[in-house]
Design a protein around this nucleic acid. Structure first.
Lengths: 140, 140
DNA sequence: ATTGATGCAAATGATTTGCACCGTG
DNA sequence: CACGGTGCAAATCATTTGCATCAAT
């Protein structure tokens, strides 16, 4: 938990139990949770925590670059503590969201820069498909 | 307007003035409008049209594959009558959304398929940057 | 002691839904 | 004529905000 405390201080943020819990949770999961999901996971340990705090905290963490916000096309946002830009893949069967390796798209970025007169500063790459488990289910 | 009528019939949809207007508008714009924007553009010509109808119509058009839904990370969806999968680029200055040529990413798709055990069936690629006009504004 | 963070409840905003009426096929 | 489409208003759901209280620096 010390590294997380350090991260927050480094960004000039006050260190509170809620922030520690939220950032810690995000850094140790790969499920790309929504605010709601994070809240549900943490209320048991922090019974007074409110959903509003989760949203406010995520806003702050996003603005300081400690987490990134994903929008996979659902009604709500998901959050990811892996902040280097990397593509995601969404399972259309079970809805889970996984990471793809960043190396996959580094060439693409060059290509895009060559073909546009925009000054490109970011990107979001989402792929959709069926994970191995869901493929298996469909074949039965 | 006949081609649009034909498109709707071909999908087994009833042809109504509202549907014609919405699909026609989407097919002749490149601004990737939201439901709200579409509504505002059309109320003057169709004073009785309701926003709910726009949403319901977009739902139907999406399900029949006549339009695609974009989620650029704003609070709302945008719609695009160009239904072949292609990347989009969003201007962070003025918020406009433009198309990038599909050819840019065909290699990427192969790459992704090679590196994942998902059965890939779709993708959404968004780039973010500043359009030439906004770059100029920033330099002044 | 200050200043920013929390938590509740109320507000907002996009989208959806129920239902009576209307127009297309 | 039947059935799906429309339009209104009310409902829903994610997210945001106001504000009084509380805790970290």
């Amino acid at each position: 938990m010390e590294e997380i405390t350090a991260l927050l201080k480094q960004k000039g943020l006050k260190v509170t139990p809620q922030r520690l819990a939220i950032l810690n949770f995000l850094m140790h999961t790969n499920e790309h949770p929504t605010a709601e999901t994070i809240y549900k996971k943490l209320v048991s340990d922090f019974p007074t925590m409110s959903l509003a705090t989760v949203y406010k905290t995520l806003e702050v963490l996003k603005n300081t670059g400690l987490v990134q916000e994903l929008n996979v096309g659902e009604g709500s946002f998901r959050y990811d503590a892996k902040t280097t830009p990397h593509p995601h893949i969404v399972c259309l069967g079970c809805g889970k969201v996984e990471d793809l390796d960043e190396s996959i798209f580094k060439d693409l970025l060059e290509e895009v820069k060559k073909h546009t007169d925009y000054k490109v500063v970011g990107q979001k790459l989402y792929f959709y498909g069926y994970c191995p488990a869901c493929q298996k289910k469909m074949n039965n």
